[in-house]
């Protein structure tokens, strides 16, 4: 190999290795992280790269549509089953069936299965949290017009779906206070995965 070429190659190969030791980027306070190698990976990072812009509360509020089981994220408003029923028949029944049973896109309401058949998985027998009904319907339904429902409509529909599944009675008003308190039939069935690898088949 000609001398000059080998020198060029050496420089190219070594330069990236040298940068971390130059001490140009030195983290003042490596963050507390659960993983050792992250801390060493980032030892040469500046404290901040100064990229991105600070989000305003207004823009966060616009996007922050999620609802947690403790009710965090539920908007103002309320709903009752009777009103939900008429919205459902209009906007949901074509895909999920009259009364939420047997539509082309799946039942939402539990029913007695035909002889020899397993019961369909529905809100009534498989959903562990009532808040998920509100969250999901508001973000994704109706499938052909997602995000088109008002919060009030979503409360009515949630009340309807819970009542149709015999989880609440028809007079229960569903709002930010009452929805997190609804106990779902499937709640006690849910267990977190505790497998950690190893020979056992679970």
């Amino acid at each position: 190999m000609p001398k000059t070429l080998s020198r060029v190659l050496l420089t190219v190969v070594l330069l990236p290795l040298l940068i971390p030791t130059l001490g140009v980027f030195h983290a003042e306070n490596p963050p507390q992280t659960p993983s050792q190698n992250i801390a060493s990976d980032t030892a040469h990072f500046p404290r901040s790269f100064g990229l991105g812009r600070v989000a305003t509360q207004v823009e966060i509020k616009k996007l922050d549509i999620d609802v947690r089981p403790d009710g965090k994220g539920l908007p103002i408003g309320s709903g009752i089953s009777a009103k939900g029923k008429s919205i459902f028949e209009l906007k949901c029944a074509p895909c999920h069936g009259i009364g939420g049973v047997g539509g082309p896109n799946g039942s939402l309401v539990s029913s007695v299965p035909a002889a020899g058949k397993r019961p369909e998985r529905t809100i009534g027998n498989y959903w562990p949290y009532a808040t998920t009904v509100f969250d999901y319907v508001r973000r994704a339904m109706p499938f052909n017009a997602p995000g088109s429902l008002t919060d009030e409509e979503v409360y009515h529909l949630t009340a309807y779906l819970l009542h149709a599944n015999k989880i609440i009675d028809e007079t229960t008003v569903i709002d930010a206070k009452s929805l997190p308190k609804v106990v779902m039939p499937a709640h006690q069935l849910f267990i977190p995965d505790n497998r950690k690898g190893g020979p056992e088949i679970k």
Binding site: T132, D135, Y136, D193
Partner: peptide, 24 residues
């Protein structure tokens, strides 16, 4: 957050229970 995709879907029946957050 207990979203639909980690409760109604992507969970599996295991001996009468429903196993959740089976990430691996």
């Amino acid at each position: 957050f207990m979203t639909r995709e980690e409760t109604s879907k992507y969970t599996e029946s295991v001996n009468g229970k429903i196993r959740q957050f089976s990430f691996d």
